[in-house]
Design a protein around this nucleic acid. Structure first.
Lengths: 194, 194
DNA sequence: GTCTATAGAAAGATAGAC
DNA sequence: GTCTATCTTTCTATAGAC
């Protein structure tokens, strides 16, 4: 098969990036293909030269969102395990993240939105979640046998904290919730100095 | 103003109950008014005799879902605080809840769905969340000053655990996640015997 | 590969009979 | 108060010019 031109790949990337932003902000069903293409400075007719359907775009958008998210930028860290986890908690459970002032994590922004889809979308979401929990697990001390459990529960707390915060309409309660998850998450995931 | 007949109230309740089930299962945008009315054994034209709009129904559905949910049935407990919290964790972080085999909690099932709405829907969601965290906080020992923090973080873990579980497509990972949240949640919220 | 134009389907909301 | 019928808008997806 012929390989896509560099130009086409760039355009495709722009569409994906717009999709990530808009799906996260408004939800899959409240964003039309015309919206996405307009955001990417194109017209809606050209969409199908890049993706087979809106659903197909969604699956790729979940993966692309994970790659773009702040979490991904943690990966090549060179820091201590504790420092990585501290940065993850602080960056994730941040009001700037909730308000989408930096790249949103699809696990939190699209959780119940993904739950009602089929096939590829769920699979992509599952893969991203697996990657996050693996990232955390590797950084927990393995002298106790429950580190995977703590990683799973800690991830649920982070994701739940951000997802719920986005749904609340009370600014003070949002801050309390994020602060509580940061603090308890730190107890759960970081090794306390003694 | 004239009060609605008993008959009308019953019909209204049926519509609300159908809305709770279908919104939770498929998401707000993937359920039409015709779907809801058909589920309630009515035709779609009659909807507007009961609700001003689909949005208005949504706000009421969030509140109705909270009332119907398993959580609500815990409230008149007569049990010890620890027993209440243990039952809450076990019932909430249960595969039967995730698969909607009993009344779903709107906090978990509608989190990112509510986040993209305006007005009444967010307000209703916030009220339900406040009620859940108050329920938990009251049952934590107040000798430590951080009980509200633990309640908030624990609620986020429960909600996140169920919301994420619903999005995953890997049965084994769903069970691991729920089990991890139950176990860590128990450490966080229940007083351990010593 | 991207554009304009449009086909075809679905859904929210309303009108009017009964 | 609930029904059938319909208006109107919106959206996915396709067709065809360039």
């Amino acid at each position: 098969m012929a390989w896509p031109s560099k130009q086409k790949q760039e355009t495709r990337k722009r569409i994906l990036s717009s999709a990530v932003t808009l799906f996260s902000q408004h939800g899959f069903d409240n964003v039309s293909i015309a919206d996405i293409m307009q955001h990417a400075q194109l017209t809606h007719g050209g969409f199908y030269a890049h993706f087979a359907s809106k659903q197909a775009l969604y699956a790729e958008a979940v993966t692309a969102a994970a790659r773009a998210s702040a979490l991904a930028k943690l990966l090549p860290s060179g820091q201590t395990a504790n420092a990585d986890l501290a940065r993850l908690l602080a960056g994730y459970l941040d009001i700037a993240h909730v308000e989408q002032r930096h790249s949103p994590c699809p696990l939190a922004f699209l959780a119940t939105d993904v739950a009602v889809r089929e096939g590829n979308v769920r699979t992509a979401y599952t893969r991203v979640f697996r990657r996050l929990t693996a990232f955390i697990t590797r950084r927990l001390p393995n002298d106790k046998g429950d580190r995977r459990e703590r990683a799973l529960a800690g991830a649920a707390m982070m994701i739940g904290g951000v997802a719920v915060a986005r749904a609340l309409d009370d600014e003070a309660m949002i801050e309390s919730l994020l602060g509580a998850c940061r603090r308890v998450g730190s107890e759960l995931l970081e090794q306390q100095a003694e």
